[in-house]
């Protein structure tokens, strides 16, 4: 189990995350929902351990082991991965090199991952992961990369952003595929079609868990209430 205990994080004198606690049990699909700027992505970056997201207080536990001070690499080696909202571009690196990280890998497995994200391996394996790929293509390559990592916990930061609306079914299909393979999904989203695929969700507002529970109920509450609630959120501007 992955567990956040009373996490606090501030930046530029703004308290972004104000004492959040969450639990992510194995092989389940969790949603982190809320409006823009409430701190959803920040929670994902804190779990992954990105350099600008060192917590001010609180602990992160993986199977009861404290991982709060571990590096990104150490967390990745323990099975935590991140689907980036806007994945970085790399010059001179082919899709194949990026997916394998220059390690030996079964080509059939790579092709299967690309097919799962609706990219034709014949067309994409030798393309470069640089700015010539569209945002949607780059995001799909990142999704294929996450599939190949076979993580225990995958943080999916806005998995549908930058991807055409016709590909929503593909994302949902990949979520099902990963769940069936035993990956716990932590899905950061404000899209109800994706949030409804989650089993349990946390509604974030103003850096706190405002509500948690069965996803459909959380989504229903979010749709009815959150656009007009008037809470002040800092994460986006920080």
């Amino acid at each position: 189990m992955l567990r956040l205990e009373n996490i606090k994080y501030s930046k530029n004198s703004n308290d972004i995350i104000k004492g959040i606690s969450m639990k992510f049990e194995e092989e389940k699909v969790y949603g982190i929902v809320g409006n823009n700027g409430v701190g959803k992505s920040t929670i994902g970056y804190i779990i992954m351990g990105l350099s600008d997201y060192t917590v001010n207080d609180g602990k992160i536990f993986l199977d009861d082991n404290d991982i709060t001070d571990l590096s990104i690499t150490e967390r990745a080696k323990k099975g935590i991965a991140l689907l980036w909202q806007e994945p970085a571009r790399f010059e001179g690196i082919t899709v194949k090199n990026y997916l394998t990280l220059n390690k030996k890998m079964n080509i059939k497995e790579i092709e299967e991952a690309l097919n799962l994200v609706n990219l034709d391996p014949d067309k994409y394996l030798n393309r470069l992961v640089d700015k010539k790929l569209s945002g949607g293509e780059r995001k799909k390559v990142e999704l294929a990369s996450c599939i190949l990592l076979k993580p225990k916990y995958l943080i999916m930061d806005e998995p549908d952003s930058g991807i055409d609306i016709m590909s929503l079914d593909m994302i949902v299909g990949v979520m099902d595929y990963l769940k069936n393979k035993g990956t716990t999904l932590i899905v950061i989203t404000h899209r109800k079609e994706i949030a409804r695929k989650c089993e349990y969700s946390y509604l974030i507002c103003a850096g706190k868990v405002f509500l948690e529970g069965e996803s459909n109920k959380i989504v229903e509450y979010y749709e009815k209430t959150c656009d007009t609630c008037g809470h002040i959120n800092y994460a986006e501007e920080a």
């Binding site: 990105l50 350099s51 590096s71 990104i72 690499t73 990745a76 980036w84 790399f90 990280l101 990369s145």
Partner: peptide
């Protein structure tokens, strides 16, 4: 670039 480094580190490098 830090985002490039951290992208790859999040994959275990």
């Amino acid at each position: 670039k830090q985002d490039q480094l951290e992208t790859l580190m999040s994959k275990g490098l």
